[in-house]
Structure formats: structure tokens, C-alpha cells
Design a protein around this nucleic acid. Structure first.
Length: 793
DNA sequence: GAAGGCGGTCTTTTT
DNA sequence: GACCGCCTTC
């Protein structure tokens, strides 16, 4: 392989150093994925079996991209390379050996929501006043312990006499016990339990060490201690461990990432080859210089300096707007301008922000302007109530020991089974050492239930019915059908259908989308596992949906602006990047400003990550007036903006560079290309901004700004948000409305379960199409067109 | 057992 | 301003 044709000398060295530990310090945009891809291709060329290669990435999306690129490069064999995230890697291993840890292979995976519910119950049991000691606090402590591989017993020994800590330690014990009895693991457990598995069962570890002779870890700066230990164990035999990372891009300290894993790699692996990739292929010089200047304020970094041979490019744009509304408007208009001038397509643009809450203002504006966009994160699809409910049904079917899920759905939809009765059943279950579900199935044996007992039994029978049907070979393969059954037989769908609540129509759409996702997953599974004939199991599907990140669902194919947090943007790049809310108090947030230098440095790395996403143009914006947590604030311009030397900046940056400087001026204007057109507006905003920009910090108060004067006759806020939102929903088009119904009234159709029949009526209600079918044998039924998937005959 | 209303409390960032 | 938990009422 002529690596020198495709790689620079450092990259080439990285791709050629195949044996022993390798640390690749890959600066932003330095072509690390490219390098790793070629390294893997090179391994294959040296006759290393793809079966022996492991690559761990941060997101499924990154994993998919890496696999695809290797595939393209080597043509074949890439399928057998194990490319996955930490969490999905662990799930795959754990499912195979769950019994060794006392788990069943169909264990549930709990997300943050589930964890909180569980902890809430525990606090109730322990009589913990959750006003004094919040569930979240307990869970955070438990999580940090797990990140550091500290077991409940070890934590016992670590806590002193502090009564709160002692309570947490006790809660940790109970929490783990309940997870186990529910046959469930939280995210952290996936890593911790895999490490424990390896520690307790050397023969299992040995088999994986033999298999994974060449290990790659991407985004190594974001690994925590547990993940470090996992990798260390796996690599311990062959020591062919190649880690790639950038200490300047470590932004997950809050979830246990230990920056010393990368800083001290050479201490842990003294024989390591260290390679620095310092040439940036992504950004123009101005952008890079600005980012370098900001990150230079951090102490204790690995010494490196990024350079580029790209031209100077545009200066970094900065705009101080008077309010968050004006900020959103500016960004939307600026993107529209670039589209008009054919400088960009929507998909070349991304808007980044520090907190998810900021997305709303932007979204409203984008909807108002009819600009295509996609928000990554925020209210996760899988976090929605109806989706969680549906998944809780599925988890109950897959894992009857999961009391938490049973509790969630036992009375959804309403079955007249209240909390008091469920508690009675739970007590009975505990006394008889059976699961809650089994107790419900035999509710007639539980004293004091009255009529409720029968309702419980009916519920249990309904679940049993679906479960046993699923275990038929025929059904096992058909996830969409299974979901369809669950939604129909549980009465969940009917409940939404008869509801007058507008939101419930959306919910039906979301459930429809979940079914589509199940179908897509089946297809994907069949492609990825051609050797397996049976298709994915329900547990496979549940694992998959538990481990998807929001970013995984972003496809390049759609032409739309992406909106996401700075964290979500890591690893991505765009021609045009906007970072909104560059204000002290928001970014960096108050927590970081007052949280000490370490916090501040992490925040600065986040700024660095954000800025280095930009290839061509980087635009930073701030609002002099904004509503945070329902409170009006006047934030000063972010210190990160002030850390950028003037020569790389353009815009209406206020004249002062620090609070000691002159802050009475109306702001200075730099001139650059393209912005002349909005001079008039900038001017007026500039003036008002000039008087509002410095309130709120250092006691140098200048008068509170007046409410910004509306510049248009119609502003987005004139329309109720919900109306705009549904407009957006329509535009996006749910599968329900967009679904192709090639049949009409009078046509003969076939339903997968009810057989053949004649369409009697079709009507649109709440944005969904309902079809009335007179079946030959199953009678007259009203079906949702999207769900029923009727086939025209 | 269900539904609606009131008041308190927060918010980073996520696999 | 949103969510959650607790309370009251039917």
C-alpha cells in the first residue's frame, strides 16, 4: 500500500506502527479518522485477520462511518471487524456471558429516566426526604463511583461519619440489589459489569484478548477510569493498543472522563510510540488562529500547535444582538443570505449552542422563515412518553422480572388498577420472592384486592398472550408486527385515538415512527448479519434503541440546517458554523465561572471544539438581553470572544476587551466582506447593544435595556408556538400522513392478521388516515392506515 | 381511583 | 417557564 500517496508523514507513521502501544495525538481536523482507516487497511494488508481487530468509537454514527470507510478502502473483510461504541461492545459481551454474573441474557438497560424512577422508589422505602437529598444527587454519586469502579462495599469504607454520605452508601446497595432483581443494568453498569466479568473470569478475558489482538480507541480523552480499565484488560496480552485523542477536546469530565488517561498514557505504556498530528485540513487560518488563541489560555496541555496551509479565509464574525430573538433572526437571515448567494446549502450550516434550552428560540425562527432544520438532541425521540410506554411493554415481554417497567404500564392506559393495589401486589411478590409480574398473574391469591384482582389477571394474560405468540418462530422475526400487536391489544392505541388532546395525534405519529424504526432495524440487522437467518430478537431491538444517541440519526442526505449542543457537535465539521449565546453566564456558564479553574478549562475546551468545527466561516453571536430560567438577564460578551485577538475578528465587538477598559462606547465595527448589507440594522442594534452589553457583572451596571422594539409587523411570537410547531410537523410529514395508500374505497385488500376484505370507508382525522375494512372472516374493523399496512389485491 | 390545581425548584453538557 | 410532586375534590 502506498500510504505516502494518501497520508502525510505523521499520519503515515501512525498507519504503519502496528505493533505495541501507540498514542496518536490528533488535533482537531487533523485527519484522524482517515489515519485510523488506513491503519486498519494496512493491518488487513499485513494479513491480520479482520476478526482480530477492534475499534471503539464514541457514537454509533462514528462507528458506522469508520466501517464504511474501511469497507470502501479494502473492499471486503470489513464486516468482520468489530467496530462499536463502548456501550454496545459491552452489551454484546455481557449478553453472551450474563449468566456468569447472575443475570439473564435478556437484561433490560435503564436510561436516566428509569434510574430516577427506581431511585425515587428507593428513597420512599428508605424514608429519605428528597427535598433535602435529591434522587439526582444520589444517582450522581453512584454514577461517579461506577465511573471509578468503586463498588457499594468499597464506597462503604470510603464514607466517613457524614450522615448524608452514609445514606447514599446505603441507597447504592439497595439500588444495585434492585437492578439485579429486575434483571436490569444502567449505562454505567454495562462498563463496570464487563470489567467485573473479566476480573472474575480470566478464561473469558483470555478469549477476548485472543480475539482482539489489535485494539483502537477513538476519542480517548473522553474515557473514564472504568473504560480505561476495560481497555487495559483487553490489551494486556498483546499490547497492540492504539489510542487516538486530543486533550484539548476533552469535554466530558462531568460524566467521569479522566483526562489523565490520555495525559499519562506514556506513563502507563512506557514503550508507547507517540505521534502528533498537527496539520489541520479543515479550517482556514483565521478560524484556526482564533481557536488556538482561545485554547492557549488553558494550563497543562500537551504541547502542540495546529497549523494549516489553507488560506486566511474570512475573519471570525462576531455579532452582538440585542436579544435572543434578534440573535435567532440574525442567524436565520445570515444563512438565508448565503443560500441566496449560492455560497452554501442548508446542510453546510450548523448552529451550535451551550444548552438545549437555546434551541427553542432558534427553532421558532426557523419555522417562521420556513427554513429546513433538524434539531439534534433535546427531547430525545426515545425519551417521549408514548415511546417509553411502548418500550416498557416490550421490556415487560422480554424480561418479566423488570418490575419497574411493569409498574410503568400496569395502568397505562387506565385499567382501574391504582397505586394502592399495585403496592399490595408488590408486597405479596416480595414475601413470596416472585416478580411483580408473576404476582399480578396470580392476583386472586393476593388478599384485599377485591375486583382489582381480576383486572390484574387480565393484564397479565394480555402480556402472556403476546409473549407466547412472539415465541412462535413465525412471530419472532417480525418486530413491526409485534409492536403493532402490543399497541392494539394493550388498548394503548385506542386510548390515544379517542382522545381529544391534539398532542395525542402526534403521539400516534411517533409510535408509527417507532414501528418504522423497528422495520428499518430488521433490515439493517439482516444486512449486517447475513449468516443469521432468524432475524433480530426483541432483546436485540431493545438493546439497539437503548444505545442510540441522537447524533446517530443524523444523515447527510437531507438538506437542512443542523441545530445542536456543542457537545453533540464533537467529531463533526461544517462549512458554516454559528455559535449562539457567546455570553458570560451562559457560555461559559455561571457554574464554570464560579466552579474553579478546572471547570473553566473544560468550558474553554468546549469553545475550542465548537470553533474548530468550522471549515470556511465561523460566526459567533451574543445577545445583550436574554431570558434564562424565566429570568431576564443581561450577560456580558463571553470571555472566550474576548480571548480572540482582534486581528482574527470582524464584527460589532464592543470596544473594551475587559471590564477595566472603556465600556461607555457604542461598540466598534470591523469591516469585512458580505456584511455591508446589514449595516443599517447592525447599526441600530449596535447602539442598543452598546448600552446593554455590560450589565450584570462586576457591579458595573448600566441601565437595563428596554424591551427590544419589534422590527417587523408580524413576529413569530404572534403565532402560538404550538401552531407553528404543528405547521412544522406537517411540513416534515409523518409517515401517517405521507404513507402511500394505493387503495381506495371499494378495493379488496389484505391484512396480515385479519386476512382479506373490502375497504368500506376512509377518513382523515387528527392528521391520520383511518380505513374501515369489512373482512371476509374477521368482521368490520377500523384501522389506522399507517399501522395496518394493508396490501391492495 | 382519577383529574385538576397549586407551589416550589431548578438547568449545563450525555453514552 | 417547565416540570414535578403534593394536595384537594369528585
Amino acid at each position: 500500500m502506498h500510504l505516502e500517496k494518501y497520508l502525510n508523514p505523521e499520519q503515515k507513521k501512525a498507519a504503519e506502527t502496528l505493533e505495541g502501544p501507540v498514542l496518536i495525538l490528533a488535533g482537531a481536523g487533523s485527519g484522524k479518522t482517515r489515519t485510523i482507516t488506513y491503519r486498519i487497511a494496512n493491518l488487513l494488508e499485513q494479513n491480520v485477520s479482520p476478526w482480530n481487530i477492534l475499534a471503539i468509537t464514541f457514537t454509533n454514527k462514528a462507528a458506522g462511518e469508520m466501517r464504511e470507510r474501511v469497507d470502501r478502502l479494502v473492499g471486503f473483510g470489513a464486516d468482520s471487524i468489530w467496530v462499536a461504541t463502548f456501550h454496545s461492545t459491552c452489551v454484546r459481551i455481557l449478553r453472551r456471558h450474563a449468566d456468569l454474573l447472575g443475570y439473564d441474557q435478556s437484561f433490560s438497560i435503564y436510561d436516566a429516566d428509569d434510574q430516577k424512577t427506581l431511585m425515587k422508589n428507593i428513597c420512599k422505602e428508605m424514608n429519605i426526604d428528597t427535598k433535602k437529598l435529591k434522587e439526582k444527587t444520589i444517582l450522581n454519586t453512584i454514577s461517579s463511583n461506577k465511573d471509578e469502579l468503586v463498588s457499594p462495599e468499597e464506597y462503604d469504607r470510603m464514607v466517613g461519619s457524614d450522615p448524608i454520605e452514609k445514606k447514599i452508601a446505603e441507597a447504592y446497595h439497595i439500588y444495585q440489589k434492585q437492578l439485579k432483581s429486575n434483571n436490569a443494568m444502567d449505562f454505567d453498569d454495562l462498563i463496570v459489569n464487563t470489567v467485573r466479568l473479566f476480573q472474575k473470569h480470566p478464561e473469558v478475558l483470555a478469549s477476548y484478548q485472543e480475539r482482539f489482538r489489535y485494539i483502537h480507541v477513538d476519542e480517548y480523552q473522553d474515557t473514564n477510569t472504568a473504560q480505561f480499565e476495560l481497555v487495559r484488560l483487553l490489551a494486556d496480552r498483546y499490547r497492540n493498543l492504539c489510542v487516538v485523542g486530543d486533550d484539548d477536546q476533552s469535554i466530558y469530565r462531568f460524566r467521569g472522563a479522566n483526562i489523565h488517561n490520555i495525559l499519562d498514557f506514556e506513563k502507563n505504556y512506557p514503550e508507547a510510540t507517540v505521534i502528533k498530528l498537527e496539520q489541520n485540513y479543515r479550517s482556514t487560518q483565521n478560524i484556526l488562529n482564533a481557536a488556538n488563541a482561545v485554547i492557549a489560555n488553558n494550563q497543562g496541555r500537551k504541547d502542540k500547535s495546529l497549523w494549516t496551509d489553507k488560506g486566511e479565509g474570512h475573519k471570525v464574525h462576531f455579532r452582538l444582538l440585542s436579544s435572543q430573538k434578534e440573535e435567532a433572526e440574525f442567524i436565520a437571515e445570515d444563512i438565508a443570505r448565503k443560500i441566496r448567494k449560492r455560497e452554501a446549502q442548508y446542510k453546510d450550516c450548523a448552529v451550535l449552542y451551550r444548552t438545549n434550552a437555546q434551541s427553542r428560540e432558534l427553532e421558532e425562527r426557523f419555522l417562521y422563515d420556513n427554513m429546513p432544520y433538524q434539531i439534534v438532541g433535546g427531547q430525545n425521540f426515545y425519551g417521549r412518553k408514548e415511546i417509553k410506554d411502548c418500550l416498557a411493554y416490550l421490556k415487560t415481554i422480554a424480561n418479566g422480572n423488570d418490575d419497574l417497567m411493569v409498574r410503568r404500564i400496569i395502568n397505562v392506559p387506565k385499567r382501574g388498577i391504582g397505586n394502592t393495589s399495585v403496592d399490595k401486589a408488590a408486597v405479596y411478590a416480595a414475601n413470596n420472592e416472585i416478580s411483580l409480574f408473576d404476582a399480578l398473574a396470580h392476583a386472586d391469591r393476593i388478599p384485599g384486592l377485591g375486583k382489582t384482582a381480576q383486572k390484574m389477571i387480565e393484564f397479565a394474560e394480555m402480556v402472556e398472550r403476546i409473549r407466547s405468540r412472539m415465541e412462535d418462530a413465525e412471530y419472532y422475526d417480525d418486530l413491526p408486527e409485534l409492536l403493532d400487536d402490543v399497541l392494539n391489544e394493550s388498548g394503548y392505541l385506542e386510548d390515544l385515538r379517542v382522545s381529544n388532546d391534539e398532542e395525542d395525534a402526534d403521539r400516534i405519529g411517533n409510535l408509527d415512527e417507532l414501528i418504522s424504526k423497528a422495520a428499518v432495524y430488521e433490515e439493517k440487522y439482516a444486512q449486517e448479519n447475513p449468516e443469521i437467518e432468524t432475524g433480530p430478537t426483541l432483546t436485540d431491538f431493545l438493546n439497539e434503541v437503548s444505545l442510540v444517541a441522537d447524533i446517530d440519526n443524523v444523515s447527510e442526505e437531507n438538506d437542512r440546517v443542523l441545530l445542536m449542543t456543542l457537545h453533540a457537535a464533537k467529531g463533526l465539521e461544517f462549512d458554516h458554523v454559528y455559535i449562539a449565546g457567546m455570553e458570560d453566564g451562559l457560555f461559559p456558564g455561571d457554574g464554570s465561572i464560579f466552579g474553579g479553574p478546572e471547570e473553566m478549562e473544560e468550558e474553554r475546551r468546549l469553545a475550542y471544539v465548537g470553533m474548530t468545527r468550522a471549515k470556511e466561516e465561523l460566526t459567533l453571536t451574543a445577545a445583550g438581553y436574554r431570558v434564562m430560567r424565566g429570568q431576564a438577564v443581561n450577560n456580558p460578551v463571553s470571555q472566550f470572544v474576548r480571548e480572540i485577538p482582534e486581528e482574527f475578528l470582524e464584527g460589532n465587538l464592543p470596544r473594551y476587551r475587559s471590564f477595566e477598559d472603556d465600556f461607555s462606547g457604542s461598540g466598534r465595527y470591523f469591516d469585512d466582506d458580505g456584511y455591508g448589507r446589514i449595516g443599517r440594522r447592525t447599526d441600530s442594534i449596535g447602539r442598543s447593544a452598546g448600552s446593554t452589553a455590560f450589565c450584570g457583572t462586576s457591579g458595573i451596571g448600566i441601565s437595563r435595556p428596554k424591551a427590544p422594539t419589534p422590527r417587523r409587523d408580524v413576529k413569530p411570537e404572534d403565532k402560538p408556538y404550538a401552531a407553528i410547531k404543528s405547521l412544522g410537523a406537517l411540513k416534515k410529514g409523518s409517515a401517517l400522513t405521507a404513507g402511500t395508500t394505493d387503495y381506495g374505497v371499494g378495493d379488496r385488500v389484505r391484512h396480515i392478521k385479519f386476512g382479506e376484505g373490502v375497504v368500506k370507508n376512509m377518513e382523515n382525522r387528527d392528521g391520520a388516515t383511518y380505513v374501515t375494512v369489512e373482512f371476509d372472516t374477521a368482521g368490520v374493523r377500523v384501522l389506522s392506515a399507517a399501522f395496518a399496512k394493508l396490501q391492495k389485491l
